[in-house]
Amino acid sequence: MRLGNLERSIMELLWSHPDGMLAQEVAQALPSSPAVTTVLTVLVRLSRKGMVSRQRLGRAHLYQATATKDAFVAETMRAALDEATDLAAAVNRFVGVVSPEVAEVLRDALNGRDGSAP
């Protein structure tokens, strides 16, 4: 799932505040200082995408990420590979450009798989 710049900035904040944030807090924490109404619009959009949950807290809502950043990154990688016309070429290209550290983590993860689907 691709995120726009403001969506990504908001998600970064929510990932760094796992207990959640109010829209006003999100707006104040963003360097671009968007209007609270703009932040609310984006939070509703992220909620519809299933990335954010909201819980009523008095007259406001507390917004929380529904999954960790690592889970989002993993899903993004999976979705990108699903888009590949030539899966083998895409994976080989990816493996050819990652750092040795990432290659080692991939190797360890594949070696640790028990053969069942994730």
Rank of each mutant, 00 (worst) to 15 (best):
D82G: 15
I10M: 08
R45G: 06
E25N: 12
S32K: 02
S116N: 14
V95S: 03
A84S: 13
L57P: 03
A109C: 01
A27R: 13
V98T: 14
A80L: 10
T41N: 11
G50F: 00
R54P: 06
A117K: 13
T85Y: 13
S116G: 11
E101Q: 14
V26C: 10
A60R: 15
D82P: 02
A29K: 14
S16I: 05
A103N: 05
P34C: 06
R45L: 12
P100C: 09
S32P: 00
G20P: 03
M51A: 14
L22A: 12
G4R: 02
E101V: 11
A35L: 15
A27P: 08
E75G: 06
A80T: 10
A80G: 03
M11I: 00
L6P: 00
E7A: 07
L43T: 07
G50Y: 02
F72R: 04
D82V: 08
G96P: 05
R48S: 08
L14T: 01
G112N: 11
V44Q: 14
S33I: 03
L110S: 04
D19K: 12
R93G: 08
T76R: 06
M1W: 00
T85F: 12
L6S: 06
V102H: 08
K69G: 01
D82I: 03
R113P: 02
S9I: 00
M11N: 05
V95T: 08
G4D: 04
T41H: 12
S32W: 01
G112D: 12
D70M: 01
A65Y: 04
H17Q: 06
V26A: 12
A79T: 09
L14A: 04
L13V: 05
L40C: 12
D108E: 07
L62P: 10
K69V: 00
R59M: 08
E12G: 01
A88W: 04
R2G: 00
G50P: 04
L14P: 02
V39G: 09
R78I: 05
A35C: 10
Q64I: 06
M21D: 01
G112T: 03
Q24C: 11
L40H: 13
A90N: 00
M51T: 02
Q24R: 15
V95K: 07
R45I: 04
A29C: 09
A60Y: 15
L22G: 11
L14Q: 01
S53C: 12
R93S: 09
T85S: 10
P34I: 08
N111D: 06
R8Y: 02
A60N: 15
L6H: 05
S116Y: 05
E25T: 10
A103Q: 10
A35V: 14
P18E: 04
A117D: 13
S99C: 09
L81N: 04
A23N: 11
E7S: 07
V42I: 15
S32M: 03
H17A: 12
